[in-house]
Design a protein around this nucleic acid. Structure first.
Lengths: 232, 232
DNA sequence: CAGGCATATTGCGCCAGAACAAACTTTGAT
DNA sequence: ATCAAAGTTTGTTCTGGCGCAATATGCCTG
């Protein structure tokens, strides 16, 4: 395998406090791996043997119910750690992770976890910050699911995605990975039919523009309005 | 203030690995405080100045939306830590915490947190296990809110409460703190009306028995059935 | 024990959104 | 080009459960 360059990690929060040699050390312990779009990295409740860093692409954490329904818990953008079950005192992965687009990851055996925490300055702190952020996101999800209507949930989900992975494009901000109506409905707890109707309506109003597997938000303000307004 | 006894902490997971002197140390740093039923311990987004151990009673973490709706995130049973914002890399509390019944807590200034983590064996590990468990609970909530119907959500919420704080009583298992239909609806993302109807119906079937602010589950199996069954 | 307040029950109408159904479009493979 | 598969749109029907409103019941206070 080609030797990995230190600059890959140097600017990422979990490693930003570390010196060159330490990063070299870490990289030499890592394995890099490429995943196709839609590939499964690991399954829920599997033994948590590795922890991962997402170098490029997007992955999502999801659950599959006994009835076969998919519920998306979380999207992870490039640059973040995932599969960090040990940070939560768990020995199995709490969710299934699959790639949303082609993805490049680094991984380390979980047996190295304690030494990463102990040896590398800032690694623990940043990791727990990440955990805290995800927890916050989940709380927001719960609140939204509890009190918001479908339309509001879809609107704020779109806003969140734009915020996390939006890429400037002409006429709006593009969500930077392939996303279907079904995906959106898995994130919002509704059906793809309803999402389709909403997007069509919004497109007519010029708020979004959507092609197959692609959504561009043209008027974020309008979505914000939709997501907060309590309709009469 | 009366001196606290070491036996208070000795058997609790975060401290169970510690020796007598260490526990003494910890207790001497602690302040104990009693809260009335329904009292607020701290508010969301307040500066996280303390971390808490719940010695007796039950507290709940909740959010209040701008519109004034309450969403209950989590119940914390006696013996657990809460307000551990620092474990999540946060400097403010992520939710409001209020007591559900009369409660006794110990608290320490958050400035002691780093030293607790560093000095006391097992404290960090157990803390993160707690975080992991709560995260798991939240995931379950999200899944339930996404794919289950109101009746199923109420049923499984009742089961969870029975599981966490149930106390054997004649004729069934009693939920060991005062709980209103409104509370239940805040936990399940529905209205108190619907909860009331459901409880009435279940009472007629002999599945539960409810007085004012009190619910007893007589036939857990029936609730389990209700919570999983995919109604035609 | 009277009055007042919080909690609970119940009936009714209505509508957001799910379920079902079917056609259409884009993409990619042969 | 042709075909198949995946994704999307749109129409119609139906219902769970919310909103509103009135009433009942237990609980606390003075």
């Amino acid at each position: 395998m080609a030797k990995l360059d230190e600059s890959l990690l140097a600017h990422l929060p979990p490693f930003s406090l570390l010196g060159r040699e330490q990063i070299r050390e870490i990289l030499d312990l890592a394995t890099s791996q490429r995943f196709e779009e839609g590939a499964t990295v690991y399954h829920e409740s599997e033994d948590a043997g590795r922890f991962y860093l997402l170098l490029d692409g997007t992955v999502r954490a999801l659950h599959i119910t006994p009835e076969g329904e998919h519920v998306t818990a979380l999207h992870v953008p490039a640059g973040q750690l995932f599969g960090i079950a040990r940070a939560l005192g768990r020995s199995t992965y709490p969710a299934t992770v699959e790639t949303v687009s082609e993805a490049i990851v680094l991984w380390w055996p979980m047996s190295l976890w304690p030494q990463f925490i102990a040896r590398y300055e800032g690694f623990a702190t940043e990791t727990y910050r990440t955990v805290g952020e995800r927890l916050g996101e989940m709380q927001t999800r719960i609140i939204e699911l509890s009190v918001l209507h479908v339309e509001q949930r879809v609107a704020s989900t779109l806003l969140r995605l734009v915020d996390q992975t939006g890429r400037k494009a002409e006429g709006g901000i593009l969500i930077d990975f392939p996303i279907t109506r079904q995906d959106l409905s898995d994130m919002t707890g509704t059906t793809l039919h309803t999402v389709s109707r909403l997007l069509s309506a919004w497109q007519k109003q010029g708020i979004v523009e959507s092609r197959r597997k692609q959504i561009m938000v043209c008027e974020p303000q309008s979505l914000t309005a939709l997501s907060t307004a309590r309709p009469a």
